[in-house]
Each structure stands twice: as C-alpha cells, then as structure tokens.
Nucleic acid binder design. Structure first.
Lengths: 166, 166
DNA sequence: CGAATATATTTCAAGCATAAAATTTTTATG
DNA sequence: CATAAAAATTTTATGCTTGAAATATATTCG
C-alpha cells in the first residue's frame, strides 16, 4: 500500500500528524455520506409510498415553486446542479403527468420555460409539508443550537475543490 | 399551503418555537445534501479522469479489499447498503475487467463468493491513496478538533427513522 | 449579407439504483 | 420422502445520472 499520507518510518512529527488528520477526515467523510444516504433513502421510500413520486421530481417541483413565472431548462439544471439531459427526462415525465407545462420563450426559439401547473402547485404544497415533517423527525437528534455551527462547516466543504485555488 | 409546522395564528409559544426549529433543520438538511453532493461530484470526476472508473466500482473494491477471502453477493449488498440486483451488475462488469472473480461456495450452490484478483488489489491500492488525498483536500476546512463532535451528530442522524421507535 | 462561433436544448450510450418477479437450491416439516 | 417454505441470486422494468454528440437557433464580425 503506497499511501503517501499514511505514517511512514522516515516521516517528521508534522507529517505524522497530517497523516492522522487525513485518516480522521476520511472517516468523517464516510459518516457524512452514510448519514446523507440514510436520510435520502428514508425520503425516497416516503415519497414512493406516500405520493407515488421520487425525490428528483420533488426537487424539480421545489425549484419551480419558488419562481412562479417558471425557469428555462438551463436555469433549472443550473439551480439543481444536474446535467441538462437529466432535466429533460424528468421534465418530460412531469409534463406527461400534467404537473408542468413548457412555454416557448419570446425572441428565442431555442429556449423553453418550464412552469408548474395549478395542479402541480397544489401537489407540491401537500408534499412539501410532509417533506418538512420527515426531515424534522430524521434530524431531531441535532441540537438546534448546533445548527448554525454545523451549517458553517458544511458550507465550507461545499466550496472546496480538488483542483487549485479556494 | 396547509403546512402543519409553519407558525399559525392559533399556535402556542411552544408550537411556534417548534416550527422555527423545523425550518432550521430543513435548511441544515439542504446544506448537508449540498456538501455531500459536491464532494461526490468531485470524487466522481477525479475517478473518471484519473482512473477511468466510478465511485460505485470503488466502493465495491473497497469493501472486498478489507476481506481477503471475499464476500458473498448478499453480504456485499448488505455492507454497501445497495440492492442485490445493483451489486450483480457492478460485479458483472468488474469480473469482465479482471478485477474480481466469482468463486462457488461449497455446500451451497445458490451462493457465490466474490473476491478481488491480484490486479484488483493493486488497482485498489493506487486508487485508495488518491481517494484519501482528495478527501483530505475537500474536507480541509474542517477543524480536526471538530471532527469528533461532528461525527457524533452525523451518527445520530444515521440512526433515525421516520417510522416509529428510535 | 454570410460564414464562423456561441448558446439552448435534446438525444444517445453507458452505467447506477430500486423494487418486484422469477429462478435455483436448500432447509424444514408433516 | 415429498412438499412447502425459506434463502441466494439474477432478471426485468423503470427511472435517474452523466458526458458527449447532435440539432436548432442566435449572434458576431469580416
């Protein structure tokens, strides 16, 4: 195992400390991943059994609920941070189900705006209420007083990159 | 919007406090999700460009690296917490690539053990080293002194359920 | 104007993920 | 022993996800 970060015979005290920190971060990442996957799995199951829908569909609806006039496909994929092609498929299915409508954009025949229908807005409101309650249950082991601090740590993770700067 | 948790005219002081806590937890969840997705996206990109492989493949290899004699398919899906059918597909491809071998289990012709090949172990070691370094970079905004505390909070999230007990 | 370039979106191929049904083999029990 | 029940795995259907190629429309600038 040629691990550059594991403690090695020739390492200085600082190196060894860094290796330990590296292992600690790795364990932390695995726990972060485990916690997130767990919550996602619970949500997916609840959306499926309770509303016969999926998390990605809910995410699209949530993004559009906040912007009554709708969003262009590219804005939607940018807000949700998923690929354009992915959004196309999810939106296709939501349109089929009468939850979304596609509206042509004036002066640009390349673009389309997507908007929730009335039925879509109503369905979202029902789901959002349950969603908030599920999250409340799942995260209720977290001290509310901790939330601010925890949030800051997570914010800073979300900004790091493995390539250059930041 | 019939939100049971939002502050309502008729609510008591306690109800209003709970509604605020609920909103805070929802925001925290969104940040947790954002941070996790961000790290996953960086890792996926790095695995793709650096090793022409994927995170799920790495996860399977990591699970098998720890157990030299290999794991049964059901053990693998249980350790990784993914469905049986999913593991079948990923293992199929890893076997095609010479990274894994399937070994029949004595006295039970239903089961198969899956094990890393020598080439598989070597490839894993190279990738694991990079993986640890990537995580180290991505999480280096986190105080090592915080890690323990943060870990505990995450552990407790990972144990909650939306249905009964706990 | 007209060719090159840029932008918005969709299509495509491959892989990941689940739940449910099907298959094969083992174990239990009448 | 025979048949029912359980267990291990694979198969199937459906949907999410990406990155890359394709399509269509807009914009730029020589």
């Amino acid at each position: 195992m040629s691990d550059k970060l594991a403690a090695q015979p020739g390492m200085t005290g600082t190196d060894i400390k860094d290796a330990a920190a590296s292992k600690a971060r790795l364990r932390l990442w695995l726990k972060l991943l485990k916690a997130t996957k767990h919550v996602e799995a619970e949500l997916r199951e609840n959306f499926r059994t309770g509303f016969d829908t999926t998390l990605p569909r809910f995410d699209v609806m949530a993004a559009l609920y906040r912007v009554e006039q709708g969003l262009k496909m590219s804005e939607l994929s940018s807000v949700l941070r998923v690929s354009n092609g992915n959004v196309t498929g999810i939106v296709d299915r939501l349109v089929e189900d009468g939850i979304l409508v596609r509206i042509p954009v004036d002066n640009d025949r390349r673009a389309t705006t997507v908007r929730l229908t009335k039925a879509g807005r109503e369905q979202f409101e029902a789901m959002a209420s349950s969603h908030e309650a599920w999250i409340d249950t799942l995260l209720d082991g977290i001290d509310v007083s901790e939330v601010q601090h925890l949030s800051e740590q997570l914010e800073c993770i979300a900004r790091k990159s493995t390539k250059g700067e930041d």
